[in-house]
Amino acid sequence: MFKLILSDPSIFKTSFEAISSIVDEVQIEVDSDGLRLNAIDRSHITYVHLELKERLFDVFQCDEPIKLNVDTEELMKVLKRSKSDDVMELTVDGGSLIVTFEGAIKKTFKVKLIDLEYETPESPSIEYPVKITIPIKTLKESIQDIEIVADRVEFNIDQDFLKLKAVGEFSDAEVEYLHGEKVTEDARAIFAIENIKEMLKAEKFADTTYISLGDDMPLTLTLELLNEEGELSFLLAPRIEE
């Protein structure tokens, strides 16, 4: 028996806004603990991890572990048809994922399961020297400030500030955010703004974002739901200066 019911589909929709802009296909794994997925884009620049714990769902029936391989663009088209006050139900029938949204009207979509073209490696565990929190809206606005001058951004964290800097052809920009965390080391790395914007499509997932950084290390951006009921995290490879 496989049936998941979520009274607020926006968590799913928001997650897939970002996921579908990064990867073409995903394997969604569901077992008695919850739902999770790991995926990496074809160029191996961005890794994405989503985890939704069993207790987040209003109904969670999953008798045996199941793997659902879906085309993210197709699933996103369906999820876009949900309204925030709809109740979402996921079931499986034959080779399809059945997605229903029930509000004033009931909509049923059958999304074909696919064969995966490539495998996703396990999430790497990286030790970071620096970790801070920032409201995701603040991060998004800062990136919008920076992108008017350049297509890449330097993240610089010291004991007081997160500084985002860019040097453009005609203008330079710098945004400073007082992070208020205990940081004992400095960290600096450069990233493509286009990739950061893909991750920020998940802004409605959770208000608080954790940034982990080290010199020329990947940027880890973690969005956590209240009571650790869910987590969406990204790992973005840096640009390296030559």
Partner: peptide
């Protein structure tokens, strides 16, 4: 000048 690195070195 900078080049895009890959996550492969971290796996």
């Amino acid at each position: 000048k900078s080049r895009q690195s890959s996550l492969d070195v971290f796996f």
